[in-house]
Design a protein around this nucleic acid. Structure first.
Lengths: 112, 112
DNA sequence: AAATCAATTCCATAATTATGGAATTGACGA
DNA sequence: TCGTCAATTCCATAATTATGGAATTGATTT
């Protein structure tokens, strides 16, 4: 995974409304949520939400599909995997991990 | 964990030089690296690196300690755990996870 | 206490990012 | 094909963030 892709993903998540939107989608699972439902849930003007959803989409974190007049968004779990794996790559140089380190988990994830 | 804390952490990581610095520290493990060693490794002016290290410290992602004239930085693995757990909280509403979802891993982490 | 070295803070400039009302695009039902 | 609804794009304004040279702070050696 490219550093640039990772930075876009992190930047996309580093914003109050986008973080809230992403988490709502993570929790919604495969069914996803419409833009309208998200705007309602987050109490945001449509144009603002649309801007934020575009950022998340551009960063590859969420996926858009059309259903009638609505656009349905859902989280891309594969992208999340990649993001976390990248952050933990070669954690502790592969050894001497502190007890609270998560290297073992990141390795598990990288294998998958 | 607070949303605001998470946003600061993500924002701190969403920058080329800070992401590189953080990863170098993750890979360095508990020994850490001095500011000078990092500046050398990343080919950055001291003042710029200092600015970025302050952001990472403020976000709680890295820890500073003094060793003689040098300041040694190291990654805070606990903060990373918290960050990832937060992003995956209630993933898929606890059920129906897609095959590529990482819910099981995030639960494992939340328990720890 | 003076010289030196590591690193930070200060500061002005440059660049990027967020906001929301108004206009527009695309899809559906009568 | 007209009216309506869902959502996006446009755009000007406001706010935040990055950069690096020069000055400063703190710690060490002689």
């Amino acid at each position: 995974m490219q550093a640039d892709t990772i930075i876009r993903a992190l930047g996309a998540l580093a914003q109050e409304h986008r973080l809230a939107a992403f988490r709502a989608l993570v929790q919604a699972g495969a069914d996803g949520l419409s833009a309208g439902a998200l705007a309602e849930a987050l109490q945001l003007p449509n144009s603002s939400l649309s801007f934020h959803l575009a950022q998340l989409t551009n960063a590859g974190l969420i996926i858009q599909r059309r259903q009638g007049r609505s656009l349905i968004y859902s989280a891309d779990y594969g992208a999340m995997n990649g993001l976390m794996g990248y952050l933990m790559e070669n954690c502790c140089a592969g050894a001497n991990c502190a007890p609270d380190a998560i290297c073992s988990i990141s390795e598990e994830r990288n294998v998958a």
